[in-house]
Computed example of a mutant assay.
Amino acid sequence: MDRYKSLYKWMIIPMVFMQFGIFRDYWGDFTENGWAVHVHYWTGTIWYLYLIIQPYYATHGKLEKHRTNGIIGMFLAGGVCITAFSMLFRDITNANDSAQYRDNFGPFEPWFFIGVAAVEIVMILAFGYAVIMSIIKRKSLEDHAWWLITTVFLIMMPALGRGIQNIYVLIHLEEWPAIDIMTPVYFTQALIIGMILLAAWKYKKLKHPATYLAIFVNIYTCFLEPLGRSPAVEAFLRAVIKD
């Protein structure tokens, strides 16, 4: 238990990274965002807050609050998954719009948005699996805690990736529209994988299955371009996700 005494402080770091990434996209056009966007943003944000509060309760003599909030947290985790799935139609819409209005989207071609949908589906499924495993392993503090900790790294990419991509585009704006939009994606994934390994090393979980899952998902995301350019992947996504 003592090993996790300061965990709540360390969990502030991924929270900051996530908020940095999504800040401009969400708050920059706050009034223009649809209802689904607001619900998804706040369920995700509250989940990150839970992963700060819950370790504090568990390690500071507030186990009753920890257990009660844990039950509420599982409801919240379901909301994160469902709202994330409900947002996938936007990727298909963006793919269609980028094909129709090429000048407005610049380097963001249809394959990019198809690729985003392909990787986000895996992220959401992995997040749900990690939460379920944390419930199954609830009687093992080490396993329960680590499965939950890794959830922040499973769903960090969309928010952090947007922030890094926005900065990258601004720096290379004079090259528009011939900007390599995959470079910030690779940088984002390297950053997230680095955080996973650092956290796993600190808490002696380098060989834990949750660590393997988090690393796999973030490596998989690096294949966004070939996935997005695959006719088979596009056909499948367009068949199951309607814009």
Rank of each mutant, 00 (worst) to 15 (best):
F30G: 06
G194Y: 05
K62Y: 12
D25E: 13
D143E: 08
H208S: 01
I164F: 05
A58R: 05
V122H: 04
Y8W: 15
M133W: 12
W35A: 11
Y101Q: 13
G228F: 11
N69Q: 09
K139G: 07
L7R: 12
M182G: 11
A190D: 02
L76G: 02
G34P: 04
A145H: 07
I219L: 14
Y48R: 09
F113T: 01
T188K: 03
A199L: 08
V217T: 06
V240N: 11
A36G: 10
P158A: 12
L213I: 15
G163F: 01
H66D: 10
H40C: 07
S140N: 15
R162C: 08
A36E: 12
G161T: 01
L224T: 08
Q189N: 14
R229D: 04
E109C: 07
I171R: 03
Q165M: 15
P107F: 02
F108L: 09
A84L: 11
A159S: 14
V233I: 15
G70R: 09
M157F: 14
K204Y: 06
G115I: 02
I13S: 04
L49W: 13
G79H: 04
M123F: 14
A84N: 08
V80D: 00
H66V: 05
P14F: 12
L206P: 00
M74I: 15
A232C: 08
F127G: 03
E175L: 15
T183G: 02
I72S: 08
D25H: 14
F23N: 04
F23Q: 04
F112E: 01
H40M: 06
Y56E: 02
V119D: 03
N166I: 12
H144L: 08
T150E: 04
W10I: 05
R24H: 13
V152Y: 02
F20Q: 03
E109G: 09
L141Y: 11
G78C: 03
I52K: 03
L237I: 15
L173W: 14
I71L: 09
A190Q: 03
A190P: 06
Q19Y: 12
R138I: 00
T150D: 02
A58L: 10
R90Y: 13
Q100K: 15
D29T: 15
